[in-house]
Amino acid sequence: MFYPNSPQTSPQLTQIPYGQQYAMMQRQIQQPYHPFATTEPQARLYPYHYQGPIQQEQGGFITQQSTAASPQYVQMRVTPVDQSIMSGYPNQTANGSSSSSFNYNIHPQQQQQQQQQQQQLRHHAMPVGSVPLQDDRYRKQLIVNYLAPDVTSTDLHELFSRFGELDGARIIYDKQTNMSKGYGFVYFCHAEDAKEAVERMSGYEFHGKWLKVGYSTNPLNIVPSNSSPYVHAGSRGAAG
C-alpha cells in the first residue's frame, strides 16, 4: 500500500523548493479562506456584503464582478436614472436638479381664491374633541361614552347635575331594538360647569363602566337656548 506522503511516492527534499517541504498533501497545500485577509477597505468593513468592485458596462447597466450573493443577503441591482424623465418638472436647472418651490404660472386672482378656499376649509374642519370658538353652545354640550346598558337618562342627569344647572341629558337608544347604544349627551347651562365635568368625570366608574367624557361637536345635538329642557323620564321611549 502506498500513501500520498510515503517515501516511495514523495520526491527528495532537495528537489522541493524551500517553504513547501512540509506541504505535501493536497489539504495542506490548499490555503484556508480568510474573509478579512484583503487589501480593499470595503471588504474589511463589510465582509458579507462586499463582492468586489463595481464596473460600468456598455448599455448603462451596473453589474458586479463577483458571483451571486448568499441567500441570506439580498443584493440590489441599481440602474442609472434617465434624465429625460425629470425634464417635465418646473424650475429645473441645466444640471438636472430642481428647486423646492414650484411655479405653475397661476393667475394671481386664482391663487388668492385657492388660498381663501383653504382658509375656509381649515375654519370649518374641526378635529374630534375640539371646541370651536365662534359658538358658545359647543362648550356646553358633552358626550358621555361607555355607558352601561342599564343607565337611563334620569341617572345621567343626576350624575352630572352636581356640577351645575343642566339644560338636559339623554341616552341614545336603538330604534329597532330599543336598547341603549352605550353613549349619551349632557347639556349644561354654563360653559364653566361643562369644563369642570369634563375634567372630573373622564375615567369615572359608573355602573361598572369607566366613562369617557368630552365635548360634543355635532351641531345636530345642540340644544337651542330658547327651547324647553328635555324630559328626564326613566322610560326608554321618552328618553330616546
Rank of each mutant, 00 (worst) to 15 (best):
residue 2 F to A: 12
residue 10 S to W: 04
residue 10 S to M: 06
residue 12 Q to M: 06
residue 16 I to D: 08
residue 16 I to K: 15
residue 16 I to H: 14
residue 18 Y to G: 14
residue 18 Y to S: 08
residue 20 Q to H: 14
residue 21 Q to V: 02
residue 22 Y to M: 10
residue 22 Y to I: 04
residue 23 A to M: 06
residue 25 M to P: 13
residue 26 Q to V: 03
residue 28 Q to N: 07
residue 34 H to W: 07
residue 34 H to Q: 05
residue 36 F to P: 14
residue 41 P to D: 05
residue 42 Q to E: 05
residue 44 R to G: 05
residue 47 P to E: 05
residue 48 Y to N: 15
residue 48 Y to R: 15
residue 51 Q to L: 04
residue 52 G to S: 09
residue 52 G to K: 15
residue 53 P to D: 12
residue 55 Q to E: 06
residue 58 Q to G: 12
residue 60 G to P: 10
residue 64 Q to K: 14
residue 65 Q to W: 03
residue 66 S to G: 07
residue 66 S to W: 02
residue 67 T to D: 08
residue 67 T to V: 08
residue 70 S to G: 09
residue 71 P to I: 02
residue 71 P to T: 11
residue 74 V to P: 15
residue 74 V to A: 15
residue 75 Q to Y: 02
residue 78 V to I: 07
residue 79 T to I: 03
residue 80 P to L: 05
residue 81 V to C: 09
residue 82 D to F: 05
residue 83 Q to A: 09
residue 83 Q to T: 08
residue 83 Q to Y: 07
residue 86 M to A: 11
residue 87 S to W: 03
residue 93 T to D: 05
residue 93 T to F: 07
residue 95 N to D: 09
residue 96 G to T: 08
residue 97 S to V: 08
residue 98 S to I: 11
residue 98 S to Y: 13
residue 102 F to M: 14
residue 103 N to Y: 04
residue 104 Y to V: 06
residue 105 N to F: 05
residue 105 N to I: 04
residue 107 H to D: 04
residue 108 P to V: 11
residue 108 P to Q: 13
residue 111 Q to Y: 10
residue 115 Q to A: 09
residue 115 Q to P: 07
residue 117 Q to S: 05
residue 118 Q to N: 08
residue 118 Q to T: 08
residue 120 Q to P: 09
residue 124 H to W: 12
residue 128 V to T: 11
residue 129 G to M: 04
residue 129 G to N: 10
residue 130 S to V: 08
residue 130 S to I: 06
residue 133 L to R: 14
residue 134 Q to E: 07
residue 134 Q to Y: 06
residue 134 Q to I: 11
residue 135 D to F: 05
residue 135 D to N: 13
residue 137 R to G: 03
residue 139 R to G: 05
residue 139 R to W: 08
residue 140 K to T: 04
residue 142 L to H: 01
residue 143 I to W: 01
residue 143 I to Q: 00
residue 145 N to D: 01
residue 145 N to P: 00
residue 146 Y to A: 01
residue 148 A to W: 00
residue 149 P to G: 05
residue 151 V to P: 00
residue 151 V to W: 01
residue 153 S to D: 11
residue 154 T to M: 07
residue 155 D to S: 13
residue 156 L to W: 01
residue 160 F to K: 00
residue 160 F to V: 01
residue 161 S to E: 15
residue 162 R to C: 14
residue 165 E to H: 14
residue 167 D to W: 06
residue 168 G to R: 02
residue 169 A to V: 04
residue 173 Y to M: 03
residue 174 D to E: 06
residue 174 D to K: 03
residue 176 Q to P: 08
residue 177 T to H: 08
residue 179 M to P: 00
residue 179 M to Q: 13
residue 180 S to P: 12
residue 180 S to W: 01
residue 180 S to M: 05
residue 181 K to T: 01
residue 182 G to P: 00
residue 183 Y to L: 01
residue 186 V to P: 00
residue 187 Y to I: 01
residue 188 F to A: 01
residue 190 H to W: 05
residue 190 H to F: 04
residue 191 A to R: 12
residue 191 A to W: 15
residue 192 E to M: 05
residue 192 E to G: 09
residue 192 E to V: 08
residue 194 A to I: 00
residue 195 K to V: 11
residue 196 E to A: 14
residue 202 S to W: 12
residue 204 Y to K: 13
residue 205 E to Y: 15
residue 207 H to Y: 15
residue 211 L to N: 00
residue 211 L to I: 09
residue 213 V to R: 01
residue 214 G to P: 00
residue 216 S to A: 01
residue 218 N to F: 00
residue 219 P to H: 01
residue 221 N to Y: 15
residue 221 N to K: 14
residue 222 I to V: 03
residue 224 P to S: 09
residue 225 S to L: 13
residue 226 N to W: 07
residue 230 Y to E: 03
residue 230 Y to V: 04
residue 231 V to Y: 14
residue 233 A to R: 06
residue 233 A to N: 05
residue 234 G to K: 09
residue 234 G to M: 13
residue 237 G to S: 12
residue 237 G to K: 07
residue 237 G to N: 09
residue 239 A to T: 09
